[in-house]
Design a protein around this nucleic acid. Structure first.
Length: 314
RNA sequence: GCCUGGGUAGCUCAGUUGGUAGAGCAAUGGACUGAAAAUCCAUGUGUCGACGGUUCGAUUCCGCCUCCAGGCA
């Protein structure tokens, strides 16, 4: 949809035109449809801030909004990258900031807290660590265990080691690799990033109650299977994307690739997605406790709009 | 109908030579600076199938009943 065709809602003051909005929330919370509603009100564009939905070829499995769900509202950044593309939170953040700049009145949607930090420029600027070094450190952990690596880290950077649990292999590896790549202490490199909601932004956390969140996930996964998720995985594999899928590890892809009883696979995916949704919520509340919350199952959409500062005089 | 094996946490199962029980997964809460749809941490009161007997004490031994699985008829 061309931007020049946008019509301004007569009820919305023009001063809102330049304010970017962020709609956050766990999977299946209904944040995409709220974003469409917000964008419609302000004559804006929905901008994708979710790394997995940015890939092409996974439209069903990553829950990218369909044409029907977009409902004529312009969307930017969905299915933009080939599966072979490697992304990280900082680079992806820069890309999304570009999209935000292209969109007249952006409504950012994401379920990924770490990538949102990238988008909001709340990650330290760090040097690239070569894939070879990353692989080497990972190999060490497989041979020696994370606790041994934690002791190595403690020797070069006691501060960072103190922040990490000896079992947290992923972060220990990352810290060690950073140290080996730069010769510096990771704790020093990770210093002084911005926090909070950036000035000028209006954000809302879409947060269903836990029981209803679980129901929403179950319903959505069933709908995704109904819409042809297994077939979509099959097509991706036929295009030679299996290695990329195994590297990216989107939820649900491993079960489909391994095969087995479809009912059991679906149940497993639902369980994994419910657990993921819980972690998403924990991260948002932890990182941005000041963001107002909206319960899509008990509160009307008008309430969400009010909390975004879009309340209309009636 | 008979024989055998089972019935222990939401699930799959350990275990208690008799002193009322614990793993994995799940769940709940939490952490989180390039694996993040990832990784990691914390949290375990459950009529140990029912009833009765023996015993100071039974989830454990005995009897009886019941349910499940397999086998024999």
């Amino acid at each position: 949809m061309a931007y020049e065709n946008i019509t301004w809602s007569p009820l919305v003051p023009m001063s809102l035109a330049s304010i970017p909005f962020a709609i956050l929330g766990p999977t299946a919370s209904g944040k995409s449809s709220l974003a469409v509603e917000v964008a419609r009100r302000i004559g804006g564009t929905v901008v994708n801030g979710d790394p997995f939905q940015a890939f092409a070829g996974l439209a069903i499995g990553t829950g990218q909004p369909t044409e029907v769900e977009r409902d004529g509202v312009p969307h930017l950044g969905y299915g933009a990258f080939p599966l072979s593309q490697r992304i990280n939170p900082a680079d992806f953040g820069a890309q999304v900031r570009e999209w935000l700049g292209e969109a007249p009145n952006p409504v950012l949607v994401t379920g990924s807290g770490l990538y949102l930090r990238g988008i909001w420029d709340q990650l330290s600027v760090l040097p690239e660590v070569s894939a070879a070094l990353v692989a080497r450190v990972r190999g060490w952990e497989e041979g020696l265990g994370s606790r041994a690596l934690h002791r190595f880290l403690a020797a070069v950077d006691p501060l960072r080691a103190g922040q990490l649990h000896p079992n947290d292999g992923g972060r220990i590896q990352r810290a060690l690799a950073l140290h080996l790549a730069t010769g510096q202490r990771p704790s020093g490199l990770l210093d002084g990033v911005a926090r909070g909601v950036p000035a000028g932004w209006r954000a809302l956390l879409v947060l269903p109650s836990r029981p209803l969140q679980r129901e929403r996930v179950a319903r959505r996964v069933a709908a995704m299977v109904e819409a042809g998720w297994p077939e979509e995985v099959g097509r991706a594999v036929a295009f030679g994307a299996e290695a990329d899928l195994r590297r990216l590890r989107p939820l649900g892809y491993e079960p489909w690739l391994e095969g087995g009883d479809p009912g059991a696979i679906q149940a497993r995916i639902i369980q994994g997605t419910q657990a993921y949704a819980k972690r998403q919520v924990t991260y948002f509340r932890n990182q941005w406790p000041e963001i107002p919350v909206w319960d899509p199952d008990t509160e009307p959409v008008e309430t969400a709009l009010e909390r975004l500062g879009l309340s209309l005089p009636s």
